[in-house]
Design a binder for these strands. Structure first.
Length: 568
RNA sequence: UGCGGGAUGGUGUAGCGGUAGCACGGAUGACUCUGGAUCAUCAAGCCUAGGUUCGAUCCCUAGUCCCGCAGCCA
């Protein structure tokens, strides 16, 4: 039985490691404890969702805990606005941190104390080198650094200087506190890294209480140790920081054992990349600031806020993350996988509705003048419990313009002159006349219907290959619809470093369809509802863009379209 | 002659000494009142070269290619 449970567990290198840790008793009687440590300086995106769900799922699967900790060590970049959006996004994703919401700034005092102990232990010193000098002394990738002339100050002097740094006696950039490690290390991070800098700036939480702030490399491992994080997961670019992480944790254990809850360890995994999108905060910010999109929550953005407004469900995102897995290898996931997860989730959740996005009028010449017939349609094919609805059918309807072809190829199963097609839920019609304007544009079709072919009561014996959707003109409700395509025209917008990625933006990424006819049932839709517009895709009632009485629907994702493939 | 990572079908990911599996994507067919969904079938892979072994994707050696690192950012 245990084997069965083990078998159900995900098989990735992190789960394997944790199982081993548990088996080897590395955690003692401590439960597995993870965390997600966002810096509140921007919006979360789908790549963050990978990290959030990975950490959260581990805590869930191993019956442990998951913390949310804001990494707010840099007052210049961080804002409350982002704290709020991050909380909203993580909640929406379904990751639950219970009451364990922390700010790294909560521990500034403890961290200061730790720093002073480091100084007393001769493991840190105040350095007066300028930023430029520090860079020069650091050496290069291939050459070792050289030691700072301030490296061997007495701990009394260091302590005094550090206290005065805190008191605000020195200007920004004049001095820093550095860990005394090894200027000759092959790992740049170990060359006496800066651990505190002077920043006379207001912090979004601590206000003007501090004018010195810890650096990530000092702060992060220590916060993990304080919170008892057992497995500190981060992305690959932090691999080089791991020795420093361990140095800090070991030092904390040695100098501050009373505060340290666990000897945390860092494990790195590859971040998520997706085709047809960019993921870096900097690039996403440019898209917003240069108005290539309408904002952080533009439905074309890979941000959580954007995906939510697009209409993607948190379940689809979770499923996607499960399928993507986690490894240490660089990878770019095919957007098609994400779209598949979305479709699969919505397939059984989204009731069907008929909407014509590009209307072409059809007059049914033999339909009794003025007659409206209510036809019954399933809300969810294959799911009787979802019930049916009545849809009005009349002699003047709209069909999709591309469901008609004047000169149709053999494989075209829809309407063409002299050819028959079924109107979904209603009758089979045959096209008898094409009406055009002076420019040759088709403005209207005249068709006749076969009264024997009513859906579910068909006595004609006719078999037609094509079934199309329609909306009765007289009863139509009108809605606005946004059709989205990928924001970029190329799979990897960042591939060519010479070209700016904004040059690859897809001019067709948003197509707005105004006042498009929909069956009257759409009037009962509520903001936040999702539907499948028959044959057109899944759509989301966008509460942000909609106004009273004029709903806006965003296409979450189109349906798979095998005709489009045949077609080209 | 810096340090640290990584290479399994088109894409993502399992397998860690015993016939290379899953998913997406692709192809073909069936079914269908959504060219949707569903079902069936097929194509497609271990970076290279040596070595160890009865047997290597896995272990060893030597390469190749790719990624990250020189903020008082995180």
């Amino acid at each position: 039985m245990t084997e069965k449970i083990e078998g159900d567990m995900k098989t990735n290198f992190i789960y394997t490691m944790i199982k081993d840790d548990l088996k080897n008793g590395l955690l003692g009687n401590k439960p597995v404890h993870t965390r997600f440590p966002p810096e509140p300086n921007g919006y979360l995106h789908i790549g963050h969702a990978k990290a959030i769900l990975l950490n959260y799922n581990i805590a869930r699967d191993f019956k442990g805990f998951f913390n949310l900790r804001f990494d707010d060590t840099n007052p210049i970049k961080e804002e409350q606005e982002f704290v709020d959006s991050i909380i909203e996004d993580i909640r929406w994703l379904g990751a639950d941190w219970g009451d364990r919401q922390f700010f790294t700034s909560d521990y500034f005092e403890t961290k200061y104390e730790f720093a002073t102990r480091l100084i007393k232990a001769g493991k840190a010193y105040v350095c007066d080198l300028s930023p430029e000098e520090i860079r020069e002394y650091r050496g290069t990738l291939t050459e070792p650094g050289q030691e700072s002339p301030y490296r061997d100050r007495s701990s009394e002097e260091n302590l005094d200087l550090f206290e005065r740094m805190r008191r605000g006696e020195f200007p920004n950039g004049s001095r820093v506190l550095r860990a005394k490690i090894d200027m000759f290390s092959g790992n740049l991070n170990m060359r006496d890294p800066v651990i505190y800098r002077i920043l006379h700036a207001d912090h979004h939480r601590t206000g003007d209480k501090w004018c010195i702030y810890p650096m990530y490399d000092f702060d992060h491992p220590f916060s993990d140790a304080l919170e008892g994080i057992t497995h500190s997961l981060c992305s690959i670019e932090y691999s080089d920081h791991r020795p420093l992480y361990d140095w800090i944790v070991e030092s904390a254990l040695e100098l501050m054992p009373e505060e340290v809850k666990f000897r945390s360890r860092q494990t790195e995994f590859a971040r998520l990349n997706m085709t047809y999108t960019v993921m870096s905060k900097r690039k996403l910010r440019r898209l917003v600031e240069e108005n290539h999109v309408s904002g952080w929550d533009d439905p074309r953005m890979p941000t959580i806020a954007g995906l939510r407004r697009r209409g993607v469900t948190p379940e689809a995102i979770a499923d996607f993350q499960d399928r993507v897995g986690v490894s240490r290898a660089d990878s770019t996931v095919d957007l098609a996988l994400f779209e598949h997860c979305i479709r699969q989730d919505l397939e059984t959740k989204a009731p069907r509705l008929m909407v014509v996005l590009d209307p072409l009028k059809v007059v049914i010449t033999n339909w009794p003048e003025g007659k409206t017939e209510m036809v019954e349609m399933e809300n969810m094919p294959g799911d009787v419990s979802a019930g049916t609805r009545k849809v009005p059918f009349t002699g003047e309807i709209f069909i999709e313009r591309d469901d008609f072809m004047e000169e149709a190829p053999k494989k075209f199963f829809r309407l063409a002159p002299g050819k028959e097609v079924r109107l979904k839920g209603a009758y089979i019609i045959c096209c008898e006349k094409v009406i055009k304007d002076e420019n040759g544009k088709i403005t209207e079709l005249h068709c006749n219907y076969d009264p024997r072919t009513k859906s579910n009561q068909d006595t004609s014996g006719k078999k037609v290959k094509g079934v199309i959707h329609w909306v009765a003109e007289k009863h139509a409700a009108f809605i606005d619809v946004n059709l989205y395509d990928t924001l970029f025209t190329v799979e990897n917008p960042e591939e060519d470093n010479e070209k700016d990625f904004t040059g690859q933006i897809n001019p067709q990424s948003l197509i707005v369809c105004k006042n498009v006819p929909a069956e009257p049932a759409v009037k009962e839709a509520l903001p936040g509802n999702r539907f499948q517009f028959l044959r057109k895709g899944y759509f989301y009632y966008d509460s942000v863009a909609s106004r009273e009485g004029s709903p806006v629907f965003n296409r979450v994702v189109a349906l798979r379209d095998s005709w489009a493939k045949v077609n080209n």
